[in-house]
Amino acid sequence: MTPTSKRRTPLAPYVILTPAIVLFVLFLALPIGYTVYLAMRRTQVSGLGLGAGARREVFVGFDNFAAALADGELWAGWLRVLGYGALVLVVMLGLALLFALLLDSARVRLSRFSRISIFLPYAVPGVAASLMWGFLYLPSLSPIRAILDVDLLGASTITYSMANVAVWGGTGFNMLVLYTTLRAIPRDYYEAARLDGASELQIALRVKIPILAPAIILTTVFSIIATIQVFTEPTTLRPFTNTISSTWSPLMKVYRDAFVTGDLYSAAATSIVIAAISLVLSFGFLRVVRDRAFGEG
């Protein structure tokens, strides 16, 4: 090799990587860095706080993080989201799995139509879906109330009502992921199972679900992340009821701090705490499941 080509070879990967690195730095690393910077600062007002120079930004280290971690309302929010999330995860993924298996079984008619109609709600934006369900829940407008005499926006029912919106909107997507994986399984597996005398139910439980495991794990991780970030449903439903506070979910608290009460710094610190918890939960789940499902270390 000539010296020039020697010098050129190590350059090429960087040139090719440049766009990705630039985009990563501009739209991910820098904003995260700025958030961390904001999270360590605070406005310090002197006197009346009016007029120029009465307000300056000071460095406060980890004070905002400490305040976020010590905030009882934030943890109460986590608890509420945990209850809501458990409900959504189990019902939504359970339904998605059931629908995927049903659609995949040979006997189903109108499979194309059912598939699209189950998937369709996913195409409805979260805000629109929440508003639509909100109107359905409102006592004097609700057709549901004509049949069922329950306050769907009451303190004891609001979690279910919100979970219902999420399940309605999310089942289709998860079903599609699972269904696509199912279609990719070679049909001979089922044939072999049938020759061995397995029923359709046994095939589903013993063959399909184990093969689906990675896809189920994937959809679970996505759903955990989406649940932790729940914001649209409670925020949209909030004007309809007095059971949802401005800090119902952790992300709502971030929004309130940043844009309602004007404390960007606390909001930045809280959002970093949320991101950390969200990472721990998703990777923690992955780790536990991997160890169990695949016996990997």
């Binding site: 904003p31 649209t232 925020t235 949209t236 992300l251 971030v254 940043a258 844009f259 959002s271």
Partner: peptide
């Protein structure tokens, strides 16, 4: 931040509906 965008969308949607 995710909340920012959602908030803007929401604000618009809410004012449009609850005029």
């Amino acid at each position: 931040m995710r909340a920012t965008r959602l908030g803007a969308v929401l604000a618009a949607a809410l004012t449009a509906t609850l005029t």
